[in-house]
Design a protein around this nucleic acid. Structure first.
Lengths: 252, 252
DNA sequence: GCTCACATTTGAGCTAAATCAACTATTTAC
DNA sequence: GTAAATAGTTGATTTAGCTCAAATGTGAGC
């Protein structure tokens, strides 16, 4: 029943296309797993995780209304989650980077409410939820970890609510850039220079702005020497000012 | 250690001021508890629940940054949750009615991110989280139930995100009225006539609108004979039209 | 390289909701 | 009861961001 994937460590264990990956040697495990898990428990968790072939840009990981079966940790690349609103429009509800987990919206009624689409080539670790639940009954730290993961999703969604409810277009864009920046630095990547995996359209959809407004704000931030943008490459040139803008101190 | 509150059933078990309440005889238990719980498991859960004296209007249940200890099921009355945004403004993140559970935002890092304030006299059932976690290890249905509760909070927050990102002021108000209506009917109350427990200011804050806009929309909906408003009392006179308005078919 | 589809930028004008302001109604405190 | 504070309504004006429009840049397929 269990596919044994507790395979020996290799130097290339985090190469996205390398199947010889286990939670025990994954560089992301401090993000995706509970820090306090014992080595043997990590192996047990690793034992239920399934790793398929990578998604190509535009591929669906799952679709809204699909039967809920698993949550997924992003191992490489990036994905977006989106819901269909009642009148049929798409709403991007989040961008997920390596080490982050998608699919927890499906637990409530056994069907996903979001669709998840790869923004670029992406590999994921599938965590069958029923097996994770069983394991959680035996590993209290794992149960706690999933409660925390879901709680974090709640607090993040509430931050987006605040952003959409209270902030100007400029503040929204600044906050998104800072979010991506800090998530990159958590993965030991540069906080100042990175490539946005999503289109301007996705950004606008996520932040409740039109694509034109997104484009104008990028141009404006660049003129203010806060960032430097070249297509999807972003360089934050004045982190302090960007934080001020995000907090609404931009021009008051 | 355990305060035994498995007290005999009374006719008045749901009177908010009556301490002789147990999960086993609570009218709300189909909303707040997993349906599939065995009677003895309900008693075990009931054993860890603490019921204090009711909150008065304006009282805090807990404050943002307080140490996280418990989640709370609303037994009577109504509360609002709110976060402080980075620039110090309040953002109402939700209204919670009897049978609904608040506090799950605190699990992620052991501190609440929201404050919760009573909108009117309200009584709550305190569920100490550590004890609930222990019990969840022994009662798989309880573990599942909490995963589902948290998942539902996620999907609801994402619906608010969509509302704020995509909908007009009129659509937002219509959606809020429909949400309260359906939550009332779930509790066997009227879906058409009810009292809003929150102020116009709270509604505006929650929906990302100014109080003036909220007021104007109420007036407009009344002129369109969709609702009839008298202070906080609302009568939905054309449910079908209200649904159409909420879905953006109001005037297109 | 060339073509076609698509993504992005920029400009001009419009509009929904915000802001500012004045007034009325309802609580709360004394 | 009365006064003061709070909550809600309505009107006039402003504005941030939307819509419409046109041009330009970019990538995939041949």
């Amino acid at each position: 029943m269990t596919v044994n994937q507790n395979i020996v460590k290799t130097q290339d264990a985090n190469c996205p296309h390398d199947k010889r990956v286990s939670c025990g040697n994954c560089r992301l495990n401090t993000i995706c797993l509970p820090i306090s898990l014992h080595i043997e428990d990590i192996d047990r968790l690793n034992g239920i995780i399934q790793r398929g072939k990578p998604l190509q840009k535009g591929d669906y990981l799952y679709r809204a209304n699909d039967h809920f079966h698993s949550v997924y940790a992003i191992r490489s690349g990036a994905v977006k989650a989106l819901t269909l609103s009642d009148n049929g429009e798409e709403q991007v509800t989040g961008f997920y980077l390596p080490g982050e987990v998608v699919g927890m919206d499906g637990i409530a009624d056994n069907h996903y409410t979001n669709s998840v689409i790869a923004l670029e080539t992406a590999s994921v670790c599938e965590i069958p939820f029923n097996r994770m639940e069983e394991l959680s009954l035996q590993i209290p730290n794992l149960q706690r970890h999933f409660f925390q993961l879901m709680s974090r999703e709640i607090t993040q969604d509430q931050q987006i609510i605040t952003l959409l409810s209270k902030s100007s277009a400029e503040e929204r864009i600044a906050a998104l850039l800072l979010s991506i920046s800090s998530r990159n630095s958590r993965r030991q990547l540069s906080a100042n220079a990175f490539r946005l995996p999503m289109s301007r359209t996705d950004i606008g959809n996520y932040l409740g702005l039109t694509i034109e407004t997104v484009s104008r704000i990028f141009t404006r931030l660049q003129k203010q020497n806060v960032i430097s943008v070249d297509k999807k490459e972003v360089l934050i040139t004045d982190m302090e000012l960007l934080r001020n803008i995000a907090n609404g101190d931009g021009h008051c």
